[in-house]
Nucleic acid binder design. Structure first.
Length: 338
DNA sequence: CCTGCCGCCTGCGCGC
DNA sequence: TGCGCGCAGGCGGCAG
């Protein structure tokens, strides 16, 4: 399941393979994949457009086009991007195909591309030390630009919860993404304000972590991992947590994100952008999620699984004691304070 | 405005 | 062997 680290890994793969390239044709193989396309616009208008850069907020990706429109992509539960040569046998989960023009740039165009890549890298560097990898990716992309043959960019999606659509004028920040809170890897995130927002919520803290309008990119897996790390039970009401406690939780989310990003970065290559959230890192490094019955790595108490918010939650009953003040959870996991 | 809940999907693993 | 069922879960929309 793609959460922020997986989506960021995909963003880097897309940046490497798609930046500067022109889409010559689009092919929608499953209508559900473009269901979010407004009636007054047409996904087909992507054809003929050039991709300037790939951006991300939380779990949303968008391709900023030179026309200042954007192509928004969400992986949903099972979305993947792949780059394949023309004529590759179709995959059963292929939903959208973008055909990319061959690149045979003249020397001055290459120089311009290098400059653009440096701009992007500089911007990202100011943001995060993670951007060092980004820089390398952009440079590799620029260096091989003139060699790029015709390529197809495939959007695969088994469960069809994901999709793509054109957002007119959305290159900077599409309206469909504007409602999301900045994510914890966003250099412009106001962390103090975020702590205050969370502190005002009279809702279980796990719900708050999963609320993409508060801060984006956290899904069920990383929520459980961060809560375990910070020793907080997910049903603790957010407005009962102290500022330092919330700060520690946000630190935990950030650390888990970064560790997962490193693992993701090592297991994907440039031409095969795999977005299977269950790979590598998950099997080896998870402390709570999916560890039902196994000993807590900190204290040895068996990890417990509960149904909460109609999905599973995993926690250590010793390190993450259930809050006393919140009453009991109903069968649906709803809190009944009294 | 705020919170909570439902439906959308498909593949897998389980029990019978 | 095969069938049905529960589960996995992000997110938009809507009800209260």
């Amino acid at each position: 399941v793609p959460e922020l680290p997986e989506v960021e890994t995909v963003r880097r793969g897309l940046a490497e393979n798609l930046t500067g390239r022109t889409v010559t044709a689009v092919d929608v193989l499953h209508p559900r994949a473009t269901r979010r396309q407004g009636a007054d616009t047409d996904f087909g208008q992507v054809a003929g457009q050039r991709v300037d850069r790939i951006r991300r907020r939380g779990k949303y990706l968008w391709f900023a086009l030179s026309s200042q429109d954007a192509v928004i992509a969400h992986l949903g539960m099972s979305g993947q991007f792949r780059f394949v040569p023309p004529g590759t046998a179709p995959h059963p989960h292929l939903r959208i195909r973008l055909v990319l023009a061959a690149e045979d740039l003249a020397a001055e165009d290459l120089a311009a591309e290098d400059l653009a890549a440096e701009d992007l890298a500089a911007e990202d560097l100011a943001a995060e030390d993670l951007a060092a990898e980004d820089l390398a990716a952009e440079e590799r992309a620029a260096a091989t630009h003139h060699l790029r043959p015709v390529t197809e960019c495939w959007f695969l999606d088994q469960r069809t919860f994901g999709g793509m659509h054109v957002s007119p004028g959305g290159a900077e920040l599409p309206t469909e993404v504007a409602h999301l809170g900045r994510d914890l890897l966003d250099p412009e995130l106001d962390r103090t304000a975020l702590v205050e927002t969370i502190r005002r919520k009279h809702v279980g803290i796990k719900r708050v972590l999963l609320d993409q309008t508060v801060t984006s990119g956290i899904g069920n897996i990383y929520a459980d991992e961060a809560l375990w790390q910070a020793r907080i039970h997910g049903e603790r009401l957010a407005d009962t947590l102290t500022r330092p406690k919330i700060g520690g939780l946000l630190d935990a989310v950030t650390q888990v994100f970064q560790a997962a990003l490193v693992a993701g970065g090592t297991s994907f290559d440039s031409l095969y952008v795999n977005v299977n959230g269950e790979s590598g890192y998950f099997d080896r490094s998870l402390n709570a999620y999916g560890q039902t019955g196994r000993p807590c790595p900190r204290c040895g108490t068996p990890i417990r699984r509960t149904s909460f918010m109609n999905r599973s939650s995993h926690f250590c009953p010793h390190c993450q004691p259930r809050p006393r003040t919140s009453g009991r959870a109903t069968a649906l996991g709803r809190l009944t304070p009294l």
